[in-house]
Design a protein around this nucleic acid. Structure first.
Lengths: 184, 184
DNA sequence: TTATTTGTTCATTTTTTCTTGAACTCGGGT
DNA sequence: ACCCGAGTTCAAGAAAAAATGAACAAATAA
């Protein structure tokens, strides 16, 4: 049971606001919603997140008010598992947050719509960890350079490459905060 | 200098330089090479490219001189198909280029090592196209907004969301050149 | 406490993406 | 022309990632 019907329902009435909807599971989306989802699904792909995450965020974004777990599951006709994991992940990167709804109703979610925060969360959770991993790796490699290949000429070139790689990482780290600021 | 040895060799001798190697297909990589590959494989993952592309770029990066098709295939023990596609793609984004080798030898490749160009190529080939796609989509959606949901209150919220989305895209486009410059 | 409903976890299935390999094309070389 | 090796293309197989669903946990009501 999802949508509207009556407000006196003895049980968790599906928060409305999201739509005049009462549509069936799939295709129960307005054109606006479908297209917005598509945009975010594309974005998700670019940043390497599963499509379902993009759909969830997109639906929240295209809804005028917070939605609860059941709303999301029903409108996107995703499995409970996907919705659960999706919400968790999106909350982890700060793309979705708990909306403080009046009644002690079911938990409702709303999208973070500040670009700066969205990007910030993504950088923090995805890019930085990667940089950290590589850095550790690089630190370990440094030594092996001396032992490896043939002549000193090659050795020199490789040393230069290695140094450059380390420098890249530093630069990478340096741009991140900058990007955030720029989008502020 | 590539497959040194001698320029009169009747057939494509596997260019060396990359290593004191004469090792067998797999594991025929020095520790330095293996670790460098790993770093680039990780990077490939982040930017959504197949692992094999990361390996190819990584191998080139960890080699003191240009390598040819056969070298790459042998040292990474990848199929011809993967190497072919990998090289094509990496060249397309400007991450790898043809090295102008002396003799009319087999084509040799070398990595682009200017961060600015690497990033630039990636932004141009991957991010911008995405933005373009979304923009087209958004342009189409704009209209549908009027027809969709219920009350005027919601309508207003959604209109705001839509506008913000459009603004995001503009901002996104604006940062790109900026990032490049910063890395210059 | 027991019954119900919401939400989570995780093994399994499904889908998507990557890699392979074989057929094919292109360019000499003879 | 014919042969050979280099490289490309693409259908099919392998691998990886995501979605599902069922068992389970937490919370609430009865």
């Amino acid at each position: 049971m999802r949508s509207a019907a009556n407000a006196t329902a003895p049980h968790p009435r599906p928060s409305v606001l999201g739509g005049a909807a009462h549509r069936a599971p799939r295709a129960g989306l307005t054109t606006f919603e479908r297209e917005t989802l598509a945009v975010f699904v594309g974005l998700a792909r670019v940043v390497g997140l599963p499509k379902s995450y993009g759909e969830i965020y997109g639906l929240l974004y295209a809804s005028a008010g917070p939605l609860n777990f059941g709303d999301i599951q029903a409108r996107l006709s995703l499995s409970k598992g996907s919705v659960s994991q999706g919400i968790r992940a999106l909350r982890a990167v700060g793309a979705v947050r708990l909306a403080d709804i009046a009644g002690g109703d079911r938990k409702h979610f709303e999208p973070e719509t500040e670009l700066r925060k969205l990007v910030g969360g993504f950088l923090r959770e995805s890019i930085r960890p990667h940089l950290d991993g590589s850095d550790r790796r690089l630190a370990a490699v440094g030594g092996h350079l001396g032992a490896s290949p043939a002549g000193p000429a090659e050795r020199k070139v490789l040393q230069a490459r290695f140094d450059k790689l380390v420098r890249w990482h530093k630069q990478g780290r340096a741009v991140l905060p900058w990007i955030e600021k720029f989008l502020g």
